[in-house]
Design a protein around this nucleic acid. Structure first.
Lengths: 222, 222
DNA sequence: TCAATAGTGTCTTTGAGACATTATAGA
DNA sequence: TCTATAATGTCTCAAAGACACTATTGA
């Protein structure tokens, strides 16, 4: 049976940029290189694969991850020097701004790093650059379709806040009329009556929360 | 390390219905039940996960699968009675009408079965109904976006043929003007000059092949 | 000429983008 | 009053759907 791991692509928006959480490797192989936090699937400890991802997150980051999304699974000979044949299930999570993990087991340091072509070019250990790329594609598809990763959203937020976050993730400007129209059409939001948010010398914004029944369309039935 | 398998969701259009290829189990557990063909990942034989899927297909079906698409990975305790903890990577493939596999190793019989809510309800072994459902959702997304699984398409075909297949897969009628307009916009097809296909007492259809450069848009760059 | 399907023309509807306008706060 | 951002009105444009019409075959 292959050496089986989960790898975590923890994404967040910091300083108005989409960033990924990287771990400085403390052990061979690739000591001193930056890699995704990850760990081995423990069939004695984990009930499900997603539990593996959460346990690994607890060990490495001392945090639970909201809204885990399975991105892909890679498996091949000589992917990872620790084993002749390694399989990794990749999970992504978009975490809120306040998410500040502590470096845990086997990790010399943690660092948020802005996504860029150069950063993904050649710096990361193993095949992790490719995993990050795919995770971002998956996240962008979700955000473009207004299927926001729940659990990432704070309980209460304003439309401009949601739009700025979307713009950062998608890497392009959005039109506010269109954005509001689409939100309206999906009946995704519910205004918190009478509650406004002030953020400067200008008109305050209406505060919303997710609508009951979550508004997310289910998959097609057969 | 978990007991690691690949499961194959082989889909085809037969008798104008979307069907899935099921295998009658010859061994415990679930003898006599229908299940997806699948097999164990062999790190001594397989270079990559996709190679595992092709080897399993060769062993079980005596056929190679075109256009393998990874659908999802499931892993949990007590998913599969053969092992305390089982992980399965699910691959889907849409095969051409002429694809007629032979029952191979560990398989008493193979059968094409039309997709239906009842069929997916309770008949299949293990958690395979859920895997089929997800594979179909993935396939439908591809076809709805006109990202046809290549390799499934015969070298030459007509627009009405392509549209009928799409309708069968999506389970709904399509508008032919819209369908042609979208194909045109994607520059997906190339007419085979002067070649027509006759299929009855009516106007013959223009024969097409896939355009050079395949027309499929690449993923976003970071 | 008729039936059947391939292929096109075109009107309507819908959703997205662009851009102007109004609303509401603090300075 | 001025500036900044929230929120809305509305024009335009593009894609999709609806439906009629023409084209081409065999019977």
């Amino acid at each position: 049976m292959p050496f089986t791991r989960v790898e975590l692509v923890v994404l967040g928006v910091r300083e108005a940029k989409l960033q990924v959480l990287l771990a400085l490797r403390e052990r061979e192989p690739d000591v001193g290189k930056w890699a995704l936090p990850g760990g081995v699937v423990r069939i004695d400890l984990d009930e499900t694969l997603e539990d593996s991802a959460q346990r690994v997150s607890a060990e490495r980051l001392h945090r639970a991850l909201p809204n885990l999304t399975q991105v892909m699974t890679v498996g091949a000979r000589e992917r990872d020097p620790r084993s002749p044949w390694a399989l990794s299930v990749v999970y992504a999570s978009l975490v809120p701004p306040a998410f500040d993990p502590e470096a845990g087991k086997r990790i010399a340091a943690l660092q948020w790093r802005a996504i860029s072509t150069e950063m993904l070019g050649a710096e990361l250990a193993f095949d992790h650059a490719e995993l990050v790329r795919t995770a971002i594609d998956t996240l962008r598809e979700q955000v473009a379709a207004l299927r926001f990763p729940l659990g990432w959203l704070p309980a209460e937020f304003t439309v401009p806040e949601l739009m700025r976050l979307s713009e950062t993730i998608l890497g392009r400007a959005l039109d506010k009329v269109t954005f509001r129209r689409r939100l309206q059409a999906m009946a995704l939001l519910q205004a918190v009556e009478g509650k406004m948010r002030l953020e400067g010398a200008h008109r305050p914004a209406q505060v919303f929360r997710l609508a009951e029944g979550d508004g997310h369309a289910g998959p097609l039935t057969v």
